[in-house]
Structure formats: C-alpha cells, structure tokens
C-alpha cells in the first residue's frame, strides 16, 4: 500500500499506481487538469507512465475565474 498527498489531503492506494490511475480514482479522468508531482510538472503525455511512490505530493489544478 502507498500513501500520497493529493492537493494537501492524504490518500491511500492498494498497489502501485500511475498518475492517470490516480485521476481515474478521483473521477477526474478526461478532465482538463494539470498535475505537479513533488514540485515538478507531469506532462499529460506521461500520466500513464509516471508511477507514484510512497510519500509523493501531487497537486492537481484547473483554471477558475480570477483577476
């Protein structure tokens, strides 16, 4: 089991997961988001390749109204 932080909150996954699987588990598959892992951008094209490790911190962001 691995534990990661997603947008500041702890999440547990049973086995090895990649970024795309995390997005799927959070019902965000196919949505327009950008992902950062431990301070580094994970390009969309690599979501299915980048495996998470215990203790990783993910930030998942969208565009919202702002000035």
């Amino acid at each position: 089991m691995i534990q990661v932080t997603v947008n500041g909150a702890a999440r547990r996954f049973d086995g090895p997961v990649n970024v795309r699987q995390v997005l799927e588990a959070l019902a965000m598959a196919g949505k327009k988001v950008a992902v950062e892992r431990n301070g580094e951008i994970v390009p969309q094209s690599l979501h299915h390749q980048v495996m998470l490790e215990n203790g990783d911190a993910l930030e998942i962001v969208v565009a919202v109204g702002g000035g």
Binding site: V6, A27, V61, A63, V64, G65
Partner: peptide, 20 residues
C-alpha cells in the same frame, strides 16, 4: 481574459461547469 489556477475540488466537481 485573466484566469486563476487553483486546486481542483476533489470529489465535488463531477458535473460542475468549467470556465474553459
């Protein structure tokens, strides 16, 4: 048009419309 970048609302954004 300016836009802000913010964390997604995990679990609360299923059918929410998006700015995009």
């Amino acid at each position: 048009v300016t836009v802000a970048i913010r964390r997604t609302n995990i679990g609360q954004n299923a059918g929410e419309p998006s700015l995009l």
